[in-house]
Nucleic acid binder design. Structure first.
Length: 196
DNA sequence: GCGTCGATGGCA
DNA sequence: GCCATCGACGCG
């Protein structure tokens, strides 16, 4: 059975491991009577309260509360006043780690641009209304695909230059088998984002 | 192809 | 005031 639903135990690991292993898995979104599937091709790990790029490094607040809860739930927050970011809570209670889902590729002949965390949530209609949602449910969940082998590339995380000694940590993971990254020079890629 | 900038709102 | 972003615009 190449495609089994990911259960809670899958998410109960350090974010760095979870972020790697989420590459190649299939994100399933059921909304408005339809089901959309997309292969995850880009993730970032936010590894705990000591990670200055992790929201939880500023303390336990109403916004970050979900990250302090059990693994396998959605942490969705608003950034720049207009984009919702989808994260998956990792590790265990009281250890605020999460994986940001940054990019995916549509499956099953469905067309959409999911190359960026803001574009992905917009296309899949994921908002803060899904904050705290259990990702082993039936509206938003993940499937393993044991037949698929991503080619792992590690880079620095995007947009966290304020994070001092954490800004250069290799905690972004990209599937180089996806058409997304890396690309031959001059071909469509993430704008200003392929700094290894 | 690449740098710069404005939009937009919640949060500390 | 600052953002785990995006897309439009201008350059030459």
């Amino acid at each position: 059975m190449p495609r089994k639903k990911l259960r809670h135990a899958f998410f109960e690991r350090p974010a760095i491991d979870l972020a790697r292993d989420l590459l190649g898995t299939i994100l399933v979104r059921r909304v408005r009577g339809k089901e959309y599937r997309a292969r995850i091709v880009e993730t970032e790990a936010y590894v705990g309260a000591h990670d200055l790029a992790c929201h939880a490094s500023k303390g336990r607040t109403a916004r970050t509360e979900v990250m302090f809860g059990p693994a396998g739930r959605a942490y969705v927050y608003l950034i720049y006043g207009m984009y919702d970011m989808l994260n998956i809570v990792a590790s265990h209670r009281e250890d605020p780690q999460a994986v940001l889902i940054r990019g995916a590729e549509p499956l099953d002949r469905w067309q959409a641009d999911l190359t960026g965390p803001g574009k992905l949530t917009r296309a899949l209609r994921i908002t803060r209304a899904q904050n705290g949602l259990d990702l082993t449910g039936d509206r938003l969940f993940l499937l393993a695909d044991s037949a698929y082998r991503p080619q792992l590339v590690e880079t620095r995380r995007i947009g966290i230059d304020y994070a001092k000694e954490w800004k250069d940590a290799l905690l972004r993971f990209v599937d180089a088998n996806s058409g997304l990254f890396p690309q031959p020079r001059g071909v469509k890629t993430h704008p200003s984002r392929n700094a290894l």
